[in-house]
Measured scan of single mutants.
Amino acid sequence: TTVVVGNKKYTFDNPEAAEKFAKKVAKKLGATVHKTNGTFKVK
């Protein structure tokens, strides 16, 4: 599962961990999490 934050990509074996990370980053940046085909995008 990939999490994309700006131009950085983070890969997780565990989708739950990926989602948690994405939400944490989004909260910090005041952004939102978008899920597309198993990829979480923070923007």
Rank of each mutant, 00 (worst) to 15 (best):
T1P: 08
T1S: 10
T1F: 13
T1Q: 06
T1A: 13
T1V: 12
T1H: 09
T1G: 11
T2N: 11
T2E: 08
T2G: 05
T2Y: 14
T2H: 13
T2F: 13
T2L: 15
T2C: 07
T2I: 14
T2P: 06
T2W: 11
T2Q: 10
V3C: 03
V3R: 00
V3W: 00
V3D: 00
V3M: 02
V3F: 00
V3I: 02
V3N: 00
V3A: 02
V4W: 13
V4S: 07
V4C: 11
V4H: 09
V4T: 08
V4Y: 14
V4A: 06
V4Q: 10
V5I: 12
V5W: 04
V5R: 01
V5P: 00
V5A: 03
V5T: 03
V5S: 03
V5G: 00
V5F: 05
V5C: 06
G6T: 03
G6F: 14
G6C: 13
G6V: 05
G6A: 06
G6W: 08
G6R: 06
G6D: 04
G6S: 04
N7V: 10
N7I: 10
N7P: 07
N7A: 10
N7T: 12
N7L: 10
K8Y: 11
K8A: 10
K8V: 08
K8C: 15
K8Q: 09
K8G: 05
K8H: 10
K8W: 12
K9G: 06
K9H: 11
K9Q: 11
K9N: 08
K9Y: 12
K9T: 14
K9E: 09
K9F: 11
K9A: 10
K9I: 12
K9D: 05
K9R: 13
Y10D: 00
Y10L: 05
Y10G: 01
Y10H: 04
Y10A: 02
Y10E: 00
Y10M: 04
T11L: 14
T11H: 13
T11R: 13
T11K: 14
T11Q: 12
T11E: 09
T11W: 14
T11C: 14
F12Q: 01
F12L: 03
F12D: 00
F12K: 01
F12W: 03
F12E: 00
F12R: 00
F12P: 00
F12I: 02
D13Y: 09
D13H: 09
D13P: 13
D13N: 10
D13E: 10
D13V: 11
D13K: 10
D13A: 12
D13Q: 11
N14W: 07
N14K: 08
N14M: 07
N14Y: 07
N14E: 08
N14P: 02
N14V: 07
N14S: 11
N14D: 12
P15Q: 10
P15F: 13
P15K: 06
P15W: 08
P15I: 10
P15A: 12
E16W: 12
E16H: 11
E16K: 12
E16G: 11
E16M: 12
E16F: 11
A17Y: 11
A17M: 12
A17I: 12
A17N: 09
A17L: 13
A17P: 04
A17T: 12
A17E: 10
A17R: 08
A17W: 08
A17Q: 12
A17S: 11
A17G: 06
A18W: 01
A18L: 01
A18P: 00
A18I: 01
A18Y: 01
A18H: 00
A18M: 01
A18S: 02
A18G: 06
A18K: 00
E19D: 05
E19K: 06
E19V: 06
E19A: 06
E19M: 08
E19T: 04
E19S: 06
E19R: 06
E19P: 02
K20W: 11
K20G: 08
K20Y: 10
K20F: 09
K20V: 09
K20N: 12
F21Y: 07
F21T: 02
F21M: 03
F21V: 03
F21K: 01
F21P: 01
F21E: 01
F21H: 02
A22Y: 02
A22R: 01
A22F: 02
A22L: 02
A22M: 02
A22H: 01
A22V: 04
A22E: 01
A22P: 00
A22N: 00
A22W: 02
A22G: 03
K23F: 14
K23M: 14
K23G: 07
K23A: 08
K23L: 13
K23W: 15
K23P: 00
K23Q: 14
K23N: 15
K23E: 12
K23V: 13
K23R: 11
K24R: 13
K24Y: 14
K24I: 13
K24T: 10
K24E: 12
K24D: 11
K24M: 14
K24L: 11
K24P: 00
K24H: 12
V25D: 00
V25C: 08
V25Y: 04
V25Q: 05
V25I: 13
V25T: 06
V25A: 07
V25S: 03
V25P: 00
A26L: 01
A26G: 04
A26D: 01
A26N: 00
A26R: 01
A26H: 01
A26K: 01
A26S: 04
A26Q: 02
A26W: 00
K27H: 10
K27M: 09
K27G: 07
K27R: 09
K27C: 09
K27E: 10
K27A: 11
K27W: 07
K27D: 09
K28V: 09
K28N: 07
K28Q: 12
K28P: 03
K28Y: 11
K28S: 09
K28F: 12
K28R: 12
K28M: 12
K28T: 08
K28H: 12
K28A: 14
K28W: 09
L29H: 06
L29R: 03
L29S: 04
L29K: 03
L29C: 05
L29M: 09
L29A: 04
L29P: 02
L29V: 05
L29N: 03
L29W: 07
L29F: 07
L29D: 02
G30N: 09
G30Q: 05
G30A: 04
G30E: 04
G30I: 03
G30V: 03
G30F: 04
G30W: 03
G30R: 05
G30S: 06
G30Y: 04
A31T: 08
A31Y: 07
A31D: 03
A31L: 14
A31V: 07
A31Q: 05
A31M: 14
A31F: 10
A31N: 03
T32H: 07
T32P: 04
T32F: 06
T32C: 12
T32E: 09
T32D: 05
T32K: 09
T32G: 06
T32V: 13
T32Q: 10
T32N: 06
T32A: 07
V33N: 01
V33M: 04
V33L: 07
V33E: 02
V33P: 02
V33Q: 02
V33T: 03
V33W: 06
V33C: 05
V33A: 03
V33S: 02
H34Y: 11
H34N: 06
H34P: 01
H34S: 12
H34F: 09
K35M: 10
K35Q: 09
K35H: 09
K35E: 08
K35V: 13
K35P: 03
K35N: 10
K35T: 07
K35F: 15
K35G: 05
T36W: 07
T36V: 15
T36P: 02
T36H: 12
T36A: 09
T36I: 15
T36D: 14
T36G: 09
T36S: 11
T36E: 15
N37M: 04
N37C: 08
N37P: 05
N37I: 04
N37A: 06
N37R: 04
N37W: 03
N37K: 08
N37E: 13
N37V: 03
N37L: 05
G38K: 06
G38E: 05
G38V: 02
G38R: 05
T39Y: 15
T39W: 10
T39I: 15
T39P: 03
T39D: 15
T39K: 08
T39S: 15
T39A: 14
T39G: 15
T39E: 15
T39R: 08
T39L: 11
F40A: 05
F40D: 04
F40S: 05
F40H: 07
F40E: 05
F40R: 05
F40G: 04
K41Q: 15
K41P: 05
K41R: 14
K41W: 15
K41H: 15
K41T: 15
K41D: 15
K41L: 15
K41S: 13
K41F: 15
K41M: 15
K41Y: 15
V42G: 02
V42P: 04
V42I: 09
V42E: 04
V42A: 01
V42W: 01
V42Q: 01
V42R: 00
V42Y: 01
V42D: 04
K43C: 15
K43F: 15
K43S: 14
K43H: 12
K43Y: 15
K43V: 15
K43T: 15
